[in-house]
């Protein structure tokens, strides 16, 4: 005999009255591990069971790198124009507006200076959520100005790449940001200011063909996708099946393009250890 007896058939609760778990309480990693979002936040956004590094943005990276999350944002109000009157399925200004509304960001990179373990560090962190972290004039300009800040104040420089590549809506102007940012890095190199490139998931296209691969050290988070042509393009062009682990951080390390892979939880320590060693300063605890 059943414990409960259904008196009426069907569901009669109206949609408005339905109870639902609020969104964002839990996170499910690609291997299917489930973690409480608060737990995830405390664990540097690394899924504790499988070590998966969840995609995060500039806000979280600043929090991880800067002491007490204190920093001064540089050029925070720089925004894109629409020099080519570009239109695909949407007009470019509309796309920008939509991205800004959705992400509360101005463009795909934020730059800031702050103390990391007590010493100044300039960080440019990209946001993938803003049009796929694509690099247009604003990204190029903000990185260039942040590099200028480093140069002027003799502060180590770090870029956290997370990008699908150059922004199509600004066409060749986007392409030339590769040259612009690289030129600035050349100036930093001449001034002997350490530049650290962190590649995160994903670092593809124009970013790998410029600043992401030009660090005094290139480092990466585990399991990140890093490559020039995306895996789909490579597969479609060559007609070949791609090997397991192709274009992952581990693949790049093996092929000589990364100095090391670091867990996000050790990022701040490792970056500052490198800076102390290469500048022959006493190691900070």
């Amino acid at each position: 005999m059943a414990w409960f007896k259904r008196k009426e058939k069907g569901i009669h609760t109206s949609t408005e009255d339905k109870k639902d778990t609020p969104k964002g309480l839990w996170y499910k990693s690609p291997t299917g591990k489930i973690v409480d979002t608060k737990e995830l936040e405390k664990n540097f956004y690394i899924s504790p069971e499988d070590g998966y590094h969840v995609r995060i943005g500039s806000k979280e990276y600043f929090e991880i790198l800067f002491d007490d999350n204190k920093f001064k944002e540089l050029d925070e109000n720089l925004t894109s124009k629409d020099p080519l009157s570009f239109e695909d399925t949407k007009k470019y200004p509309d796309r920008l507006k939509a991205a800004q509304d959705k992400t509360k960001l101005k463009d795909a990179v934020r730059t800031a200076v702050g103390k990391s373990k007590g010493k100044d560090l300039v960080v440019a962190a990209m946001d993938f959520s803003f049009i796929g972290g694509s690099m247009g004039s604003v990204v190029g300009e903000k990185i260039a100005r942040a590099a200028n800040y480093s140069l002027k104040n003799n502060v180590p420089f770090m870029i956290i790449s997370k990008s699908g590549g150059a922004r199509m809506m600004e066409a060749a102007l986007s392409l030339m940001q590769l040259a612009k940012t690289s030129a600035k890095l050349a100036q930093l190199a001449d001034a002997q200011i350490p530049y650290i490139s962190l590649c995160t998931d994903p670092t593809t296209g124009g970013t790998t063909a410029s600043f992401a691969m030009l660090g005094d050290i290139n480092i990466a988070e585990p399991g990140a996708l890093i490559g020039f042509a995306g895996p789909r393009v490579v597969r479609d062009t060559t007609g070949q099946e791609l090997p397991e682990g192709f274009q992952t951080s581990e693949f790049l390390l093996e092929h000589g393009f990364l100095d090391f892979i670091t867990l996000r939880s050790e990022l701040k320590d490792k970056v500052n250890q490198y800076i102390d060693l290469i500048t022959n300063a006493p190691l900070r605890a």
């Binding site: 290139n218 093996e254 092929h255 000589g256 090391f260 250890q273 490198y274 290469i278």
Partner: peptide, 21 residues
């Protein structure tokens, strides 16, 4: 204090040759 650095930035990380700061 040792921080091992890898790779020739060209082809491979040679395990027979190590380096770092």
């Amino acid at each position: 204090t040792f921080l091992e650095l890898h790779g020739d930035r060209n082809f491979k990380d040679d395990k027979a040759m190590i380096g770092g700061l």
